[in-house]
Design a binder for these strands. Structure first.
Lengths: 147, 147
DNA sequence: CTATTTAACTTGCTTTTGGCAAGTAAAGTG
DNA sequence: CACTTTACTTGCCAAAAGCAAGTTAAATAG
């Protein structure tokens, strides 16, 4: 590739999103961080879907490299590693919630309450703010351990 | 597995979404259908990202089976196959647009204009309606060929 | 009517990635 | 000082992706 050539999809926002979480495990990990308050390697490993430990290590590294997570040693127990979502990851919340609304409508087996979708549609900003506050709460709690 | 056992992630809306478009190529195909007005095999094949023809065939089948696309023979040229987005696929627009807003903010190479993100944030409903109308326009045009 | 082209796939092969089991290293605990 | 916990790494096998070539049906050209 010369300097003037470039991959033609560079610049496409959907392709950018797909590059960062366009695979099953990154998707699930971001859900765990953003929606389930998980922060530690062991917590991700025991998630219901059953990610393999080598794949988990790879995905955490990739999410770190793409600026979605930061890696911290827990100061109270130095063998534990805390993965914190960045502002960039937190900013994905609206998109994730929109996906959840969609799934709530079309997945017959969904366990998400219909009230969630209704609340989001009626007042998305408030719903987003509520989930953001949850993330901030977990972050504040965990941040005390890593300084 | 006995009858009472079940995969514990059944019911998770994010997991459901990941199962349907939680991979690079499904992601890109849905973008092409929802945002770029593509409807034919050949159009998908020549997309900038360069999907392999066997992978494309597999993904189109999967998207059909998961109720995102319907397959139609073009009546004016019977060797052409038209893939139409279902209501379920169309309903993903808000989530895709939210992702685009996110990428517009965090991808330094984005070619999406900042005005798009601004417009969406200011009046999401109107922005969504505009893109929905685009889909409907393409559908109406193409539907004339497949009846 | 035959030959070529277009369009949508399929097949076979190689390379890459994912899944699983076991192992390791550093830190903390009894 | 042995044992456990935590976060990985390594090696092996299976599944999926990438690539090139082939196939089939329909349309078009001569």
């Amino acid at each position: 590739m010369t300097k003037t050539e470039k991959a033609p999809w560079i610049g496409c926002p959907v392709r950018y999103a797909a590059g960062i979480f366009g695979d099953k495990w990154s998707f699930v990990l971001l859900r765990d961080v953003l929606l389930h308050g998980k922060r530690y390697y062991g917590e991700f490993l025991t998630s219901d879907e059953g990610i393999a430990t080598n794949v988990l290590a790879g995905r955490l590294l990739r999410l770190e490299q793409s600026g979605m997570l930061t890696r911290h040693v827990d100061q109270h127990k130095k063998s534990k590693i805390c993965y914190m979502p960045t502002a960039k990851a937190r900013a994905l919340l609206p998109a994730f919630l929109a996906m959840m609304v969609w799934a709530t409508e079309y997945d017959k087996c969904t366990e998400a309450p219909q009230s969630f979708a209704a609340a989001f549609r009626e007042n998305p900003k408030e719903t987003i703010a509520w989930y953001e506050a949850e993330i901030d709460r977990v972050n504040a709690k965990v941040r005390a351990l890593i300084v």
